[in-house]
Write a protein that binds this DNA or RNA. Structure first.
Lengths: 207, 207
DNA sequence: AGCAATATTGGTCAAACGACCAATAATCAG
DNA sequence: CTGATTATTGGTCGTTTGACCAATATTGCT
């Protein structure tokens, strides 16, 4: 019984690092990138601030990693829920439903934080750009499948995906203002415009 | 010659207050809302930080006022440049050209800052909401004029304005990422979609 | 002219932050 | 088993921030 309060435990570096990023990601989603500090992450894990600083000598690295973790996790969760055997229209409807869900609020705020913070954090900007590319690639492949199946009338899947993502970005801004009236109206706009972009009838994507 | 360096001058409170807000607005546009602090504003004006604090005992008030000033100034500058005798289509094309101009970068970044900062600043959120309403109202009246003249095919001007503004918000996000390729593609999307929203041919608004 | 009001100064204060560092102890290689 | 490595601790340091305050000087009112 050397230390009755807390035995000093040591974890393999890779595991500890992942643990830190996960905690930081949780904090980022819950309270925003602004409040993501070394001290808060350390407190969340029950370790000393210096330890977090040991793994992330530059704080911006941690912010970028936390955002990347959260964004990738959410994207993968959505795409993991897709039935690969479902028709492309159903797949697209599933994606849109989750992106424009009421529960997407926290994610929208996180993205908004990230876009703003890229202004002064080059590392975060690279990570945000990478995550946006990840979304775009995923969207492109879904569109391609729809085109191959003959249900989407799209000439250039890549450009269509870019336009759809831009629309959803605009939706995130509205979500941040928390005006339910605007929120619903813009959601309708996104559903309609995306449907039109894919050569579908106006209500084809609405849940 | 009591003080050879700087004579202590006193200005009428209203004028001084306006001077402070103007300086803060300048700073907000140039460096972002993040770097808008009492000290920087004071330095910009050549006064002591305590003086700024005297006029704005709560710093959030100054941030909200600075954003409101900048946003209102830009909006009024655009609408003042509109020829009231020009046909509605030309008016709309003028507005869109200025909103999606390359020089709109600084403004886009300011709005992005503001949207993000509403998360923790209720006063700023109210100001942002007010400015968004201002834009929406201005847009509605232009649309109404076009509808009255029979050149815009719009059923509900209010909803059309909301949708158009949401599209432009999405464009601001892309502008913040500074990827020229995406930037141009999204600009095309906005031009096309707004034209479609107003019942115009696809290229009607492109400059 | 004299007085009240207050704009303006100059300074302090505590809080929070990232960065840094020496000391300790757990882990692993030889 | 022994020594090298390094994860982890606990603490300091300088910076920046918003807030606060007493003292002073200017303005406006009577």
């Amino acid at each position: 019984m050397k230390n009755a309060i807390e035995p000093k435990k040591r974890k393999p570096p890779a595991e500890r690092r992942e643990e830190i990023v996960a905690a930081a990601s949780r904090l980022a989603v819950a309270e925003g990138l602004e409040r993501l500090t070394l001290r808060r992450v350390a407190e969340e894990l029950g370790v000393v601030p210096g330890l977090v600083n040991h793994y992330f000598p530059v704080a911006d690295d941690l912010v970028a990693a936390a955002f990347g973790f959260a964004a990738a996790a959410e994207r993968e969760a959505i795409f993991r829920g897709i039935d690969p055997l479902a028709p492309p229209l159903a797949q697209m409807r599933y994606i849109m439903a989750h992106l424009l869900d009421d529960s997407a609020d926290a994610t929208s705020l996180l993205w908004l934080d990230a876009w703003q913070a890229t202004r002064n954090r080059p590392l975060l900007r690279a990570e945000v750009a990478a995550q946006m590319r990840g979304w775009q690639d995923a969207m492109i492949s879904v569109i391609r499948r729809g085109v191959a199946a003959g249900v989407f009338g799209v000439a250039d899947p890549r450009r269509a995906a870019m336009r759809i993502m831009a629309l959803i970005d605009g939706f995130s801004v509205q979500a941040a203002m928390r005006s339910q009236i605007v929120y619903d109206a813009v959601r309708d706009l996104v559903f309609e415009t995306v449907a039109r972009e894919l050569g579908l009838p106006p209500g084809a994507l609405r849940p």
